[in-house]
Amino acid sequence: MDEADLLAGALGRQTKTTLQQTKATVIDVTDTGRVNLQVLGTLVPEVRCSDAYRNRTAGDAVMVQLGARPIVLYRLGDDPADTDAATIRELAEDAAQDLVAISAYTWGTGGPPGSGWQQVSTLWTKKDGAGKGVLYAQLASASDTSPDAPATRAPKAVTVTPNDSGAWRSGKPLDGSDPSQGDWTGRGNRRGGWFYGTKIASACSGKTVARMTVKFTRKRGSGRNAKVPMHLYLHNFTSAPSGQLTLGSGPEELLRLSVGAKGTATLPASWRSALASGSARGLAIYDTGSSDYAAFTGGTITITFSAS
Rank of each mutant, 00 (worst) to 15 (best):
K199N: 12
K199W: 01
K199R: 15
K199M: 06
K199V: 03
I200W: 00
I200D: 00
I200Y: 01
A201K: 07
A201E: 05
A201Q: 06
S202I: 06
S202H: 04
S202C: 03
A203F: 07
A203N: 03
A203P: 02
A203K: 02
C204S: 09
S205F: 04
S205I: 00
S205Q: 14
G206I: 00
K207H: 10
T208A: 13
V209Y: 01
V209G: 01
A210L: 05
R211I: 05
R211D: 15
M212P: 05
T213D: 11
T213E: 14
T213S: 14
T213F: 03
K215G: 04
K215Y: 05
F216S: 01
F216A: 04
F216V: 01
F216P: 01
F216Q: 01
T217V: 15
T217S: 08
T217I: 12
R218G: 03
R218S: 02
K219N: 14
K219Q: 15
K219C: 10
R220F: 01
G221V: 03
G221P: 03
G221S: 07
G221K: 05
S222W: 07
S222N: 06
S222M: 04
S222K: 01
G223V: 04
G223E: 04
G223K: 03
G223Q: 06
N225Y: 09
N225T: 12
N225K: 13
N225I: 13
N225Q: 12
A226Q: 13
K227T: 13
K227R: 15
V228N: 02
V228Y: 01
V228C: 05
P229R: 03
M230N: 08
M230Q: 11
L232R: 01
Y233G: 07
L234I: 10
L234C: 09
L234R: 13
L234S: 14
L234M: 13
L234K: 09
L234D: 09
H235Y: 13
H235Q: 15
H235A: 11
N236T: 15
F237A: 11
F237P: 01
T238R: 11
T238S: 15
S239W: 05
S239V: 06
A240F: 11
P241V: 11
P241K: 10
P241F: 11
S242C: 06
S242P: 03
S242D: 14
G243S: 15
Q244E: 12
Q244R: 07
Q244P: 03
L245F: 08
T246K: 09
T246G: 08
T246H: 02
T246E: 07
L247V: 10
L247A: 12
L247P: 12
G250L: 09
G250D: 08
P251K: 02
P251C: 00
